[in-house]
Amino acid sequence: MTEEIEDRTKMLIAMKGHPGTGKSTLAQTLASLLKIPLIDKDDVKDCAAALAAASTAALVNDLSYDVVYRLASTQLRLGLSVIVDTPLSRRSHFCHLTDVASTAGVRLLIVECKPSDLAEWRRRLESRGADDRTNWHKPSTWREIEMLLESYGGCAEFDVGDVPRLVVDTTAPVSFDEIVSTVIDFIVSNGGSFTAPSAAAER
C-alpha cells in the first residue's frame, strides 16, 4: 500500500465467523492497513493452556471473552479504534460488544466471514490443522467443525438489529485484496473517516 490510512473516527470493528473461514487473516490485514489495535481471542486462549488443564474448557472460553472485552474497552477509552477477532457465535457476546461500544461512545460494525464453498473451507481448515498443532483449542478437522456447529444449535445466526454488518464470502473467486478493499469501503461508508487506499495493499 502506498498511501497511508488516517483514522479520525473511532470505531469498534467486530469480526465474526467460524474457525478456518479466513477471519483472522482478514482481521490482521485490516488492523495493519488501518493502523489500529487488533485484539484476538485466540491470543488469550493460547496463554491459558495450563489453566484449561486444571479447569473446564467453557470457563477458559468465557474468561477469554471477558479479557478481550476489557482490553477493547481500555483501547477505546484511550481514543483508539479497535478490531476484535472472535467467532461472535452467540448473541450474548454480541450484546456485550454493543455495551462496550455504547459505553465508549463509538460505532460498532460487524464483518462476518461466511464461506459459500464448503469444500474449500474444509481444505483450508484441515491444511491449517496439519501445519499447526500448537493451537490446542482450534478445530483441526472437519468433524470437529461439524461438532462445533452442532453445539451451537443454530444460535450462531442472530439478528444484529441496526448494527451495520458486512458478510464476505472468503471462498469467492476474487483476490484477497478485493475482499480487503470491500471491507474498507464498508467501514468508510459507515462513518469511518479513513483515507482509503486507491489500490489494494502491497503484500
Score class of each variant (00 low, 15 high):
I13Y: 03
L59H: 08
P164R: 08
S127D: 11
D159M: 05
T56G: 07
C47N: 10
V68K: 01
M1V: 00
S89R: 08
D162W: 01
N190A: 01
A101V: 07
E146F: 11
A104W: 00
A199G: 11
Y65A: 06
G79Q: 09
S193K: 11
L76E: 09
T9I: 10
A31I: 08
P19R: 00
C47I: 06
R124A: 09
M11H: 10
S181Q: 14
R70S: 15
L71F: 11
I39P: 09
D42M: 09
T74V: 09
R91K: 15
W121V: 04
L12M: 12
T25N: 09
A72E: 07
D185W: 06
E157P: 02
K138V: 14
V167L: 02
E144H: 06
D99R: 11
L33H: 06
H93E: 11
S127R: 11
H96D: 00
L26T: 08
A53C: 02
C47S: 14
S127C: 08
E146C: 15
R123P: 06
K35F: 04
V44P: 01
D7A: 05
G22F: 10
C95Q: 14
D99A: 10
I184T: 04
L166S: 03
D85I: 01
P37R: 03
T141L: 07
S189E: 15
V180G: 02
A57T: 06
G154R: 00
S102W: 00
V68Q: 01
D132L: 06
G22N: 10
P115F: 00
N190K: 01
D7Q: 10
F176R: 09
H93Q: 12
W136G: 08
A53K: 13
P19C: 04
S55Y: 05
R124P: 13
S140M: 04
A104K: 05
D162F: 03
T74R: 05
G17E: 05
F194V: 15
P164V: 07
D40G: 10
S73G: 14
F176Q: 04
A31P: 11
W142C: 13
P173W: 01
P37D: 09
S73Q: 12
I184K: 06
S55N: 10
W121G: 04
G129E: 07
V168A: 00
A200F: 02
V84R: 02
T2M: 09
E202C: 06
A199Q: 15
T86I: 13
A14L: 14
P164Y: 08
L59G: 12
D99C: 06
T56L: 07
P164D: 04
T56K: 10
G20S: 07
L12A: 11
D85R: 02
S55K: 05
